[in-house]
Structure formats: C-alpha cells, structure tokens
C-alpha cells in the first residue's frame, strides 16, 4: 500500500473516531433527548412566569407528577408496542374494564375478608388478557394492529358498561379489605406518593427491559425490520404477542392507580388515554414506524404534557384551549423530529 493511502486511511480513522465519540454522546439518552429537556425547561419557565409561587412550590411539582403517573405507566407500555412496530388504541378501554372488573370483585359480599391483593391480581389479569387477545389477533390472525385494537377499544368499554351496568362502582365498606388497598396505593414514601414511585418503578423497569435485555433487543429488531428479524431466527409472532400483553399489564397497573385515586371503578375511566399515551411516545422521539425510540423520551413527553395541563389549570384556562395547544405541540414535535432525522441520516 502506498504511503499516501496509509495517511489518508489514518486521517479517516481519526475523524471517524472523533465522529463516533460525538455520536456516542448524541446517542446516549441525554444527548438524543436534549431537545425535550429544553422544551420541558421552557414549559417550566412559562409556568413560573405566569403562575409564580403556585407553580414553583414542591406541592405543585408533586401534583404534576401525580397527574403524569397514570398515563405515564400506560405510555411506557405504548413505547414498547410502537418500537415493536405496532400501535394500541385500546389502552383507555382496557383501563376502564380493569377498573370495573376489580371493583366488582371488591364489592361482592362473598369477597368479604379476602385480601385486597386479589383486586390487584384481577386488574393485572384483565389487562394481560385483553393484551393477549390483541396480540393473538395481530400476530396470528394477521389483523392490522390499528383495526384489532380499535375493535378492542369498542368491545372492552362495552363489556365494562355491561359489568357495571353503566354505574360508577364505589369502593364501599363491605367486600374486600378496601382500606388496605387504599392505604397502600395512596400512601407516601419519603413524602412522595406511592403512585409516583410506581410510575418511576415502571419507567426504570421499562428502561432496563428495553436497553439491557434480550426482550428489548428483540423488540427493536422486530419493529425495525420484521423480515430480517424472522430470518435471523427470532419468533416475531410470539414476540408481538408479548408486547401487547406487556402493555395490557401496564393498563392494569394504571387502572389500579385510578381506582385508588378516585375510590371508584367506572366504564368511563381512562377515556382518551390512547391519545395521551401515543402523543407522549411520539413527542418523546419514538418512530411511529417502529425500530427506534427511548423510554427517557417518553417520560419527558409525559412530563411536558402534564406540566402544561397544570399551568393551564393554575391560570384558569379552559380544557379546550389545552387540547388545542396539545395538538399544536404534537405537530411541532413531529416536524422538528423529521428535520433532525433527515439531517442525521444523510
């Protein structure tokens, strides 16, 4: 090899090293989500400017997190489904069904003196069961995810209405040891609500699952290139079922949080969760086409939306205005993402 080409190669190697260092920083969760962190900071500054002390207080911070917790848990599950190349429109309905089913158990006479963990088990099982049905329809029935989960959206809420007779089921004095249930889910640890801890726990578990396990690696492979994943020996169908079961369990957890917070189970619980979760995942930088996304981004997305909600409430603005702004933010975030993506790919 001539000296020239050796030199050229060495120079190329050095630039590629520098490049890879830069890339390593940009690829880390912090680097990739720096835009979202800045966005969240801006939102907070707006909050502090318009609502002053009422926004900057610790209590308010907890309020924001409490608001974020329920949809947050669902959004973590949604992140997996979307990275895996799917979508789940039925999350809100599954939350409703889980809440109704577990409160039904709790208020039955024969359930007296039964431990409240049964409620937890029922909620999680109902969520997982709905997810299983979704997953089997999508993976083995070859039904498009959009349609299969749309059908689940309709039928799960319908079933919830039938079970509850369209009534709000209030956790009463009889039945399961409701006090224990409420005490657990509404307690605080170190001054922070259990619900917030739960969200944190689910987020951390989600991060580990996505980034450190075979399950996570397979999720990315299945969403990024299902054909290549299949030919590499991954059971794409089975994995798809797992993904929907996972989000179903997340819905079950969210249902328990809602039931504890409101002390009711209702077929109207969780309305609009699908949109909130998808919006948070998308502005968090997860590609709707699958194959790429981060848990950190989703958490930031959830926090941005819940902080905005609180700011609107503190300033006595209407819910309608809030929705309007939410829509605008989603569009802006996606436009921005596309520009960033096209710059990094060329």
């Amino acid at each position: 090899m001539s000296q020239d080409s050796v030199r050229v190669e060495r120079a190329a190697l050095e630039t590629s090293r520098e490049e890879s260092r830069f890339r390593a920083v940009m690829n880390s969760s912090v680097g990739r989500n720096s835009g979202l962190v800045i966005a969240l900071l801006i939102v907070c500054i707006v909050g502090a400017a318009t609502a002053g002390d009422r926004f900057t207080s610790t209590d308010n911070a907890l309020t924001i997190l409490r608001l974020a917790a329920t949809t947050g848990v669902v959004s973590i599950g949604m992140t997996f489904v979307i990275i895996g190349g799917g979508i789940d429109l039925s999350v809100g309905a599954i939350v409703a069904l889980s809440s109704v089913w577990c409160t039904t158990i709790a208020t039955q006479q024969l359930a007296e003196d039964t431990h409240w963990l049964w409620m937890v088990a029922v909620a999680l099982l109902v969520g997982a069961g709905c997810g299983l049905v979704n997953g089997i329809l999508i993976a083995y029935g070859n039904v498009v995810a959009f349609i299969a989960t749309l059908a689940m959206l309709a039928s799960a809420r319908g079933l919830a209405e039938i079970i509850s007779d369209k009534k709000t089921q209030i956790l009463g004095a009889n039945g399961i040891d409701v006090k224990g249930f409420k005490d657990f889910f509404t307690a605080d640890i170190l001054g922070v609500d259990v619900q917030i801890w739960l969200f944190a726990l689910v987020a951390v578990a989600g991060w580990v699952l996505l980034n450190r396990t075979t399950f996570g690696r397979r999720t990315v492979a299945v969403g990024g290139n299902p054909e290549a994943a299949r030919l590499a020996g991954i059971n794409v169908r089975r994995h798809t079922v797992y993904l929907y079961v996972l989000i179903g369990v997340c819905c079950g957890i969210a249902a328990l949080m809602l039931v504890a917070k409101t002390t009711t189970g209702s077929s109207t619980h969780g309305t609009g969760y699908e949109l909130d979760a998808i919006a948070a995942v998308v502005i968090g930088g997860t590609l709707l086409t699958g194959g790429r996304g981060t848990i950190v981004g989703t958490v930031l997305g959830v926090l941005i939306f819940s902080t905005l909600s609180i700011i609107f409430t503190l300033n006595n603005r209407s819910f309608s205005e809030q929705s309007l702004l939410k829509g605008a933010i989603i569009v802006a975030a996606v436009l921005l993402q596309q520009r960033l993506a096209s710059r990094s790919s060329t």
Binding site: R217, A221, G224, N225
Partner: peptide, 13 residues
C-alpha cells in the same frame, strides 16, 4: 438490506 440486516442497529447487535 430488506431481509438480512437491521440497518439502524449497531454492527454488534
């Protein structure tokens, strides 16, 4: 490209 590789993934993955 369409059947063999996960193009956006790292070489090692």
């Amino acid at each position: 490209k369409s059947q063999g590789l996960l193009l956006d993934q790292a070489v090692y993955a």
